[in-house]
Amino acid sequence: MRAVKIKKENLFDFLEAIKPFGDLWGPVKSGDGYVLEKVTDYSNIEMSALRTRIPFKKLLFPPKFTMFKFDEKGIRSSDEELPRQVIFGLHPCDLHALLIMDNFHSLHYVDPYYRERRERTAVIGLSCFPDDRCFCKATNTHYTEKGFDLFLTDLGDFYILWIGSSLGDDMVRECPELVDEEVTHDDLEKYIAWRKKRESNFKLKLDFTGMPSIMELSYDSPLWDELGEKCLSCGACTIVCPTCPCFNVIDEVDIGGGTGERTRRWDSCMFREYSMVAGGHNFREARSERLKLRFTHKLQAFVGAFGEAACVGCGRCIGACPVDIDIQTVAQNLKGEEVKA
């Protein structure tokens, strides 16, 4: 990693200069929230947006895409070249999620569809200030030194521009005149003061210490049945989660049946058919079983398998669920704490 500086007034010129690296996607306002959208007018980018409704994952594994087409002769892979893209404005929580997704999609078998898109993607991270739903400090994902090509830390009238990869370095070399290579002691002090201020601003205090053991002991807790009664199985929690990659595979056929395509679509472990096998047997018929799976996966099992929780504390599920079943309420419930929904 290498650090330079860039003045705030130079940011748009910088984004213009790195156009050859791909379409720029950034957070823009939509209704009461934000969504990641392709941006051409840089002033539409919401620099203070904390979380987009759906995270970056839609750009690396879209909600629906064609895997291959088929006809009577067999299958044909797509020869369409995907566009290059630059994702702007990912905060440390999402960058941690991106690292988890990178790892997941190359573990055991490389997923070619993910890799294809990932290889065409540059990532520019952006510092943030927590709101009352952020709990990345509890998941220890509030800083990151990895997962980005460039990262901007907002220090008032300028950004520290962290260069995290050779691709990031290439981007900076497009416009050396816009950056200031000299980082001073004064800048360091500003940075440290900013960190202190940021850390003291986390309002949502969650404690995940020992969570795997608590989950283990809670396997038969009546809580799961209570939550199962309330759950609408709408899948909102999984759709907004940056570390939920599950998918379904559905063939679409043209009338006549001979030609069509195999498509991949987001699926959710909250949906009834998720664990149903041919013949109708369902390994997770009850909603309570599905909720247990989801939270065990996020808070316990992933820790056992990868040494870290699959939850990055982005806070999207808090506020996404109409009936307030989220990481916060579940963790507080299991730990016998007062639950604030």
């Binding site: 907004v240 379904n248 987001w266 058919e273 996404a320």
Partner: peptide
């Protein structure tokens, strides 16, 4: 697939 309008709405 058996899922509600909510899922499509979130997508």
């Amino acid at each position: 697939p058996d899922y509600p309008v909510c899922a499509e709405c979130r997508w």
